[in-house]
């Protein structure tokens, strides 16, 4: 087996990343994974899914990359096109999203910038 390795810079990175950044990355990647799993469950290719949602294949590649920030509207459209409920689509993210919303909502963590303008910023109203 490989020898285990750690370093100052890796430890620094682990400690410096904010909870919000951690959750944002986690939500994007989990949502991408969930969408991809549902596409596979349906027996579709990515191209077939692209036709279904009326998008270019390159847009689907971005959606599934784990880096894309989805709007609430797009999440709803994807849920409808995949024939699942909104909750089923975000199920792997539900706990993470609730934590994220509570972090955004707490007075101590009110961001100075528009950090919470990702889709789940509005989620607390609909949840």
């Amino acid at each position: 087996m490989a020898r285990k390795y750690s370093s100052e810079i890796l430890n620094e990175m682990m400690n410096r990343i904010s909870p919000i950044t951690k959750m944002e990355v986690s939500i994007k990647m989990r949502l991408a994974s969930r969408i991809q799993d549902l596409i596979v469950e349906k027996g579709w290719t990515k191209s077939e899914f692209a036709l279904k949602v009326n998008k270019q294949p390159s847009e689907i590649t971005k959606w599934l990359s784990g880096t894309h920030t989805f709007t609430m509207d797009t999440i709803c459209e994807i849920a409808v096109d995949l024939d699942v409920s909104f909750n089923e689509l975000i199920q792997s993210n539900e706990t993470v999203i609730k934590q994220y919303v509570s972090i955004c909502a707490s007075p101590q963590s009110q961001p100075k910038t528009n950090e919470c303008i990702s889709p789940v910023g509005d989620f607390s109203n609909n949840f």
Partner: peptide, 24 residues
């Protein structure tokens, strides 16, 4: 810094939550 933090966190999520999916 922001991009490096996101890259680091992406790798961490790959290890701990999602695996190294091809689409990533």
């Amino acid at each position: 810094s922001k991009e490096i933090e996101e890259i680091y966190q992406t790798v961490s999520i790959i290890g701990h939550e999602t695996g190294a999916r091809q689409d990533f």
